[in-house]
Structures are given as C-alpha cells and as structure tokens.
Lab assay of single mutants.
Amino acid sequence: EEERTFTNEEEARKAKKEAEKRGLRVTVTKDGTTWRVRIG
C-alpha cells in the first residue's frame, strides 16, 4: 500500500486512473487543500 499526496486535483485524478489501469484499488480523499491518493 502506498499513499501519495497532491495539491492539484488533476494530478490526483491522473494518479488514480493510472493505478486503476494496473488493477489496483484506489481511494482518493481530500484533506483541506491536499488530495491523498491511497493505492493498494
């Protein structure tokens, strides 16, 4: 499991799409101005 943080919503969405392409489970949460993308 890996967690990545982004300040840019577009980049967070891109990371989510890429992980889904690899067949991984992805959770995206917004924490104030930060987007957290949890993969795995």
Rank of each mutant, 00 (worst) to 15 (best):
G32M: 01
K14W: 08
T7H: 10
K30H: 12
G40P: 04
T33D: 15
E2H: 12
E10G: 08
E10V: 08
E9G: 05
E1A: 13
E3L: 09
E3A: 04
F6W: 01
L24P: 00
E18I: 07
G40V: 14
A19L: 14
R4V: 11
L24H: 07
N8Q: 05
K21V: 09
A15L: 08
F6D: 01
T34P: 00
R22P: 02
R25G: 03
T5Y: 13
K14H: 10
E10F: 10
G23S: 02
N8K: 06
T33R: 07
T5H: 07
R25Y: 10
G40M: 14
V28M: 13
R13F: 14
E2K: 08
T27Q: 06
E11C: 08
V26M: 02
E18R: 04
R25W: 09
V26P: 01
V28E: 00
E9S: 05
K16C: 15
G23Q: 02
T5S: 08
E11Q: 07
E10W: 14
E9H: 06
R13I: 15
N8V: 06
T29G: 02
E20M: 07
L24M: 09
T29C: 09
L24K: 05
R38N: 10
G32D: 05
T29V: 12
G40T: 14
R25E: 08
G32F: 00
K30D: 04
T27K: 05
T5Q: 08
E10I: 10
T7N: 11
N8P: 01
T5F: 13
E2P: 06
E10K: 09
E2G: 08
E18N: 06
G32W: 00
K16L: 11
T29K: 07
E1M: 13
V26R: 00
K17Y: 13
I39V: 07
E11I: 02
A15D: 02
T29Y: 11
L24N: 03
K14Y: 09
E18V: 06
A12C: 15
T7G: 08
I39Q: 02
T7V: 08
E11F: 03
K21H: 09
T7F: 10
K14R: 11
V26H: 00
A19W: 10
R4L: 15
A12D: 00
V26T: 03
T34E: 12
E18L: 06
N8A: 04
R38T: 14
R4N: 05
A19K: 02
T27M: 06
G23K: 02
E2Y: 15
R38F: 11
K17D: 13
D31G: 03
R25M: 09
I39N: 01
D31T: 07
G40Q: 14
F6A: 01
E20H: 04
T5E: 09
E10D: 12
I39K: 01
D31V: 11
E18H: 06
N8I: 04
R22A: 10
K16M: 14
T29L: 09
E3R: 03
E1I: 15
R22I: 08
E9T: 02
K16Y: 11
A19N: 03
G23F: 03
R25H: 14
E2F: 14
K16S: 11
T29M: 08
T29R: 06
T34V: 14
E11V: 02
E20D: 04
T7Y: 11
A19R: 01
E2V: 12
E1G: 11
R4A: 07
K17E: 15
I39F: 07
R36I: 15
T27V: 09
R13T: 12
V37A: 00
L24T: 02
R36M: 08
E11T: 04
E2M: 12
N8T: 13
E9F: 13
A19S: 03
T29A: 04
R38Q: 09
G32K: 03
T27R: 07
E2D: 09
G32E: 06
T29E: 09
V37T: 01
R22L: 12
E18Y: 05
V37S: 00
E1N: 08
K14S: 10
K16E: 14
R13G: 05
T5P: 02
T27H: 08
E20S: 03
E11K: 03
K17T: 11
